[in-house]
């Protein structure tokens, strides 16, 4: 807790003076189910990229899609929407929770 601001040092009215800093807040550790993308089945349609509520699906220079596990909360929308069953949701803990 040492690096968190005190009531005296916290910003006035919780104003964010560097907009977009939500990117610094990594939400990946919220995840209980992990999407795994099978590059063999993937047809590069981009639905997962469009449907992801975070920007947690990234595209590389070759046009391949990858899950950004720093932000992915494991909601499973990409897996649900993928028409080619290329994304499988896997328990983060092998034994479940």
């Amino acid at each position: 807790m040492a690096d968190l601001p005190t009531w005296r040092t916290i910003d006035h009215a919780c104003i964010v003076f560097n907009p977009g800093n939500a990117a610094e807040y990594l939400t990946g550790d919220w995840r209980s189910m992990r999407p795994e993308l099978d590059q063999e089945k993937c047809k590069r349609c981009g639905r997962c990229w469009m449907y992801c509520p975070e920007p947690a699906v990234l595209v590389d220079e070759e046009g391949k899609y990858h899950i950004d596990y720093r932000y992915c909360k494991g909601c499973g929308i990409c897996s649900k929407e993928c028409p080619y069953d290329a994304i499988t949701m896997v328990e983060e803990c092998e034994d479940g929770i």
Partner: peptide
């Protein structure tokens, strides 16, 4: 604001 910030904001 997450719970780790909220109380400080209200105290201020």
């Amino acid at each position: 604001a997450m719970p780790d910030y909220f109380s400080e904001i209200k105290k201020r």
